[in-house]
Design a protein around this nucleic acid. Structure first.
Lengths: 104, 104
DNA sequence: AATAAAGTTGGATGGATGTCCAACCATCCA
DNA sequence: TGGATGGTTGGACATCCATCCAACTTTATT
């Protein structure tokens, strides 16, 4: 796989975003992504997660296909970033509120 | 059934709230509740919903058990209100962002 | 070239979920 | 008292989902 598919910004749905955020593991992962240094590979992020790597990969895909994250292939690792601009345009204030709520 | 159970404010979880909001029908219902006059019975709210009444009842329960709504029994009908204060204390800014996003 | 590392994919499985239907419970009204 | 009304409950059913495992692909290292 060379290219990774992402939904266009205007196809991101509220229900889809909510579903992606309805799992504790994905909320945890999203928190890690938000904390990460820019360009930090996702293998670093998943270190404290007690889940099989294929399960983590599955969660990454759900987040990406919901429009929450953008995945960039860099060698044999991937860099994952939040789609902050797209999300804030489509659902203003939602992502910051979620990120603030994750560490409660 | 005389009394209806509600989760205490500090037991409302982010994942639980997100899950309750991950269904299009529930998002629609939540939008109707937010628009409703105060004290308006929920039978009015469900008029435009093309779902069996037991299904709507099921969605009401999911919203309530997630901590999003408070249900008050009034005779043979129920009045449903958003738990705005509890939610804003626990997840500041989340509910307004969701409500603003529903009508997009 | 051979091995290791980072992720993905497909299958299997147990559990949750949305929906409908039929039956039921309360309550209001004639 | 008897019927209509607003809602809930339990069952049934099809679908989806989180998780793990094994096998695979691609890239980097020695």
């Amino acid at each position: 796989m060379r290219e990774v598919w992402h939904p266009p910004a205007d196809e991101i749905t509220l229900a889809g975003v909510m579903h992606a955020l309805s799992d504790p593991a994905r909320l945890h992962i999203l928190g890690r992504i938000a904390q990460a240094e820019d360009g930090e590979p996702c293998s670093d992020l998943a270190e404290d997660i007690a889940l099989h790597k294929s399960t983590v990969s599955h969660h990454y895909r759900v987040l990406r296909e919901a429009g929450l994250t953008r995945t960039e292939v860099d060698g044999r690792s991937r860099v994952i970033r939040l789609r902050q601009d797209d999300l804030d345009k489509r659902f203003p204030g939602l992502l910051p509120a979620v990120l603030a709520a994750i560490d409660v």
